[in-house]
Design a protein around this nucleic acid. Structure first.
Lengths: 239, 239
DNA sequence: CGGCTCTTTGACCTTGCTCAATTCGCGTGG
DNA sequence: CCACGCGAATTGAGCAAGGTCAAAGAGCCG
């Protein structure tokens, strides 16, 4: 399988042959991370940034009352903590929502790129600002959409991000996580997530059983979520 | 008054004499923007990025139902759309919440910096990832805190960000915007914001009248918001 | 004084939460 | 092949935070 980081970058801009070499060198042998294990922990100052190769992970914060808030979900090709190159210490943890494999890219290498490869640096920078755009959309959704809409938005976004790295088949994709995880991400209770999922199913928009998502009515789903994938910047252009 | 962008950068890392020169050249003569005017508009692809010199502005999206969701509030020293160097078109607008003055920095200049000044580039990059960290905190607050806590968090964050550029006096600062604006930012109705403000006042945590915020009990406010300013990365260190 | 915008208040309604009990899916050991 | 165990999905009932609508004060400027 093609290096998903390279796919993510090339989807945003053309890479020179030299840049391809550099990117391929970044992504060395994958390391497995078991479901439920933290790959980065709040308060640490990692010396590398982590790229997802397979599986799903999530950034989260835990509170004194034991609740967990997920602020981002990561799919293959995502840097889960590229910002740790610049910000220290981590203000949140990252957990493997499923069994994952990841590659750890030393900060020394990334810093070297930032010294020697301005264009590639801008592309890495672009990945972080796309991350920010996703946060913004979640924020907007959480402020203005009812729960069903928020959830619909999540499924639309995830389909789009997964299709980028070839992990969709038609309008379906695997998402082997629990409804409660989704609740932690949307700031909703597990019970309410369940009720929303039933509503989506009842309205023929979406099914999610056995860890598999099937979008039955893309336009309906998109509309109910006011989803427009433009913020993901999937166009290849000079950056 | 000292160039607030320079303050923001030097607060994160030491600048060389040459970098100071470059930064000072970036910030040329300020342009006024009247309250209520858009300084950047959704759908556009600006050829410059905008730095706040004075006043408050906000990134927002408007919906078909006429509601407005604010996803960020900007203070002097903030780049309101540094990411527009890399992402196009804008997926949101930016409005002046008060009369503002801003400086427009041509993308050509920024791109030149990214080619020639790796360290300065990393610092600009840092500003955008701090932006993202702020989004993350808002997301976390909105998912897990009740309305009063969210609002308290906002006032704590704003105090911290304003003190960075010298716009606080003790625990007070000017914030001449309407409660409804705050509601748009927190995803709350204006009525509910009002009730929360009264609760904060009643509990002796905070006053906000005549456009002036007075934090009466910083520790109490901080606690009710679970606020920890670390995510703003106000330490000067090599980046 | 008049007009405007912003804040405050009251009454009532809706969304989503909590707690607690079932039920389902599925892998495991007998 | 079947009973058992366990996590996850469902369901029900009652509650609470926050929304809506509408009206009444306050503050400020001309």
């Amino acid at each position: 399988m093609l290096n998903p980081l390279r796919i993510a970058l090339e989807r945003r801009d053309r890479l020179t042959a030299e840049e391809v070499l550099v990117v391929e060198r970044l992504v060395s042998k994958p390391v497995p991370v078991a479901e439920g294990a933290d790959m980065v922990r709040e308060g640490e100052s990692p010396l590398h940034s982590t790229v997802m190769i397979s599986g799903f992970s999530a950034r989260y914060t835990t509170f004194s009352d034991g609740k967990r808030q997920i602020s981002a979900v990561h799919v293959p090709g995502d840097f889960v903590d590229l910002h740790s190159l610049l910000l220290r210490p981590m203000d949140h943890s990252v957990v493997a929502l499923t069994d994952c494999s990841v590659v750890e890219v030393p900060h020394t290498l990334l810093r070297e790129i930032s010294e020697r490869h301005p264009h590639l640096t801008r592309l890495l920078w672009t990945l972080t600002v796309i991350d920010a755009a996703i946060f913004r959309q979640w924020l907007i959704a959480s402020g203005h959409l009812p729960a069903v809409g928020q959830i619909a938005h999540f499924f639309c976004e995830l389909w789009t991000r997964l299709s980028l790295v070839g992990l969709t088949e038609g309008r379906s994709y695997d998402l082997p996580i629990a409804q409660a995880d989704l609740g932690d991400a949307m700031g909703l209770s597990a019970v309410h997530v369940n009720r929303c999922m039933m509503a989506l199913r009842r309205n023929g928009l979406l099914e999610w059983r056995g860890g598999r998502v099937r979008i039955l009515d893309w336009d309906g789903l998109r509309t109910s979520a006011a989803f427009d994938g433009q913020y993901l910047n999937l166009e290849q252009r000079p950056r």
